[in-house]
Design a protein around this nucleic acid. Structure first.
Length: 478
RNA sequence: CGAGGUGUAGCGCAGUUGGCUAGCGCGCCUGCUUUGGGAGCAGGAUGUCGGGGGUUCGAGUCCCUUCACCUCGACCA
């Protein structure tokens, strides 16, 4: 069929060119458009709706763990940014500066937040006096700006949306506990809402956040075997507290520094959804964050009763699900292809044949499986199928991840794995920066994380052969 | 920021050694018709040829300059 061939051309096949496939999907499914500002993207309604669903569900998890939302300014005075040495060194190269207000040159230039540690710290130094003021468990949903050299939709853009949690605690133990708690929240969120398995781990010294004592990460594997750092959680110790003089009087009336954390998840997670679940027909959205969970396509809508029934189904299902009825005059086949490209988890077809039998035809996006559902008890059936789709997506992603994690105990094996097999390699490391750099320079792989669940692949460093201290997951990353 | 590439209608492209009114497919609009996997017919609209400057009787085409985007590296969520 000629039209079918054209459709195949519309989205580049994954195997043929993965990055082009990604760009095609992102644009054609109308998630984003490029804007006239370099490196900035427009989140279109369909893309923003995904983000809204991510926000809503993740925000609930934050609230359940005792956090409150705030909104900090988007400007940071240069002097404030300068206060923590490592932090400013890490971010200074990629901040945008405001130098004028109207036509007046500012006495002190303001940077547009690349992240808000300094603002939270400054505020905390004002509002924290007593042990009774702790902990402070704040979060904000905002956009930040980082002047990146090259950009890609969702994965790296000049401005991006995220949430950043910033907490202050009385003790190091509490702060460490919070850091791990939020890491687990992210991992659970990825599993339960995005149907994406992640590996929890700690970043190496080289890869950790500017100003952090420890950085934890959840790493996901994309369809092409590359890693995506999917969210991070940082333990700051009292470094920022000392730089910003955030002190409180403890129960013994002694001045103490607070211990802090920060943690973030961005619109990059949408990139993960696309690259983990998508296929050659376009997006495949996990049901719990899909803007449209069920699309109803009437067949022969001009025939008596069809459209009425379709509307009836819509209003019945709308109380429990996000439903769209497409009663436009496009051909049914066009609609099938369109909603498949947009990743709608479940399609219900209702036509004259179904009316007679009091049924509808249900087609799953994840498997393409076509079944007939009776209209009585439809709501429960739809719920069951959506849950099944979620589980299928997760299991599929999990086996894809597991089947592409390899082990290497010597340099030669490691080189071959990285060069020939897209995916992650588990290998031991001595802890020296030199080895980490050599692996990056020679093999093109970076340390993704030191997994929390440590296994011993061998006793010696895969690079230098000296005694190993850590198991590291290596891979090429976005 | 290094190396390479591309800019012509909403999208994808053609446009010969400079030549007349800048074209094709898809999409879009109107009408009829059709509807269980991207329908058909008829009619119609749409361009500062990325921007600026230059050469020329004449520039989409040649020269200079600038901007944007893409791919691969270096850097990050």
């Amino acid at each position: 069929m000629a039209a079918k061939e054209k459709l195949v051309e519309a989205i580049t096949a994954m195997d043929q060119d993965f990055t082009q496939w990604y760009t095609d999907v992102v644009l054609k499914s109308e998630l984003i458009d490029y804007s006239s500002v370099k490196g900035c993207m427009i989140l279109r309604p369909y893309g923003y709706a995904i983000w809204e669903n991510i926000q809503k569900n993740l925000d609930n998890m934050f609230k359940e763990t005792g956090h409150e939302n705030v909104a900090m300014p988007m400007f940071i005075p240069e002097s404030l940014l300068q206060k923590e040495k490592d932090h400013v060194e890490g971010f200074a190269p990629e901040v945008a500066w405001v130098t004028h207000g109207g036509s007046e040159k500012l006495a002190e230039r303001l940077c547009i937040r690349p992240t808000s540690e300094t603002l939270f710290c400054d505020h905390y130094s004002q509002i924290i006096q007593s042990w009774r003021d702790l902990p402070k468990l704040y979060n904000q949903w905002v956009s930040v700006v980082r002047w990146e050299k090259t950009t890609r939709p969702f994965l790296r853009s000049t401005e991006f949306y995220w949430q950043e949690g910033h907490t202050a605690h009385a003790t190091a133990e509490e702060a460490v506990e919070e850091t791990i708690r939020m890491l687990n929240v992210y991992a659970d969120f990825y599993r339960d809402y995005l149907a994406i398995p992640v590996i929890k781990g700690q970043k190496t010294e080289k890869e950790k956040f500017a100003g952090a004592v420890d950085t934890y990460t959840v790493e996901a594997m994309m369809h092409d075997g590359k890693a995506l750092q999917s969210a991070t959680s940082h333990y700051f110790g009292d470094g920022f507290a000392r730089a910003f003089e955030i002190q409180y009087s403890d129960k013994n009336n002694k001045l103490q520094y607070v211990h802090q954390t920060s943690w973030g998840l961005s619109t990059r997670s949408i990139g993960a959804i696309i690259m983990v679940h998508g296929d050659d027909n376009g997006l495949v959205l996990p049901p719990r964050i899909a803007p449209i969970q069920v699309v109803i396509v009437p067949i022969a809508a001009h025939k008596a009763g069809v459209l009425d029934k379709a509307n009836e189904l819509k209003s019945e299902l709308s109380s429990s699900f996000r439903v769209k009825l497409d009663d436009s005059d496009k051909m049914p086949g066009w609609k099938f292809a369109e909603y498949e490209m947009k990743g709608v988890p479940l399609r219900l077809e209702i036509g004259p044949r179904d009316l007679e039998q009091n049924q509808c035809v249900a087609v799953r996006r994840d498997t393409g499986e076509k079944t007939v559902l009776k209209l009585e008890n439809l709501e429960a059936e739809v719920q069951r199928v959506l849950d099944e789709i979620h589980d299928t997506l997760y299991q599929r992603a999990l086996s894809s991840l597991n089947s592409r994690i390899y082990e290497a105990s010597d340099w030669e094996t490691m080189s071959r794995m990285i060069a020939e097999k897209p995916g992650f390699v588990r290998a031991m490391w001595c802890g020296d920066l030199e080895c980490e750099l050599k692996i990056k320079d020679d093999l093109g792989a970076t340390s993704r994380c030191m997994p929390l669940e440590q296994n011993s692949v061998s006793s010696t460093c895969v690079c230098c052969g000296k005694p190993a201290t850590k198991e590291v997951i290596w891979g090429k990353a976005y």
